[in-house]
Amino acid sequence: MHEMAITQSLVDIIAEEMRAHRAGKLLNVRVQIGQMTAVVPDALRFCFDILTQHTPMAGAELIVEWVPVQARCESCERTFEVKDHAFVCPVCGRSAAATSAGRELSIVEIEVE
């Protein structure tokens, strides 16, 4: 259940941004989660609802955008989507090591009033 630690960090950032913008209430928050992270969205929502109780964030919608895993082939330099965790270039068949997307754990936007 490391989602609780991740959600606590998320809530801390939102609180900081709301203070900086003198916002009274959080309506929603948009986050990007890469598919190559060990995050379960339902657990994230569950933790978010608990941690925001009795705060100006209570009841806000947590919008999760999933980011597919992408890698860059080290031989032909093409970027391709990684399926079934296979980091093998579909064009030249060589193995690619560099992950270019899919490890995101980012807050993107908040809507407040």
């Binding site: 960090s9 998320l10 950032i13 754990l105 980012s106 807050i107 936007e109 908040i110 809507e111």
Partner: peptide, 14 residues
């Protein structure tokens, strides 16, 4: 009001 906040959620740990 929408606020653009592009930050790594685990930035404190990072």
């Amino acid at each position: 009001m929408k606020i653009n906040v592009v930050r790594n959620i685990l930035e404190a740990n990072a």
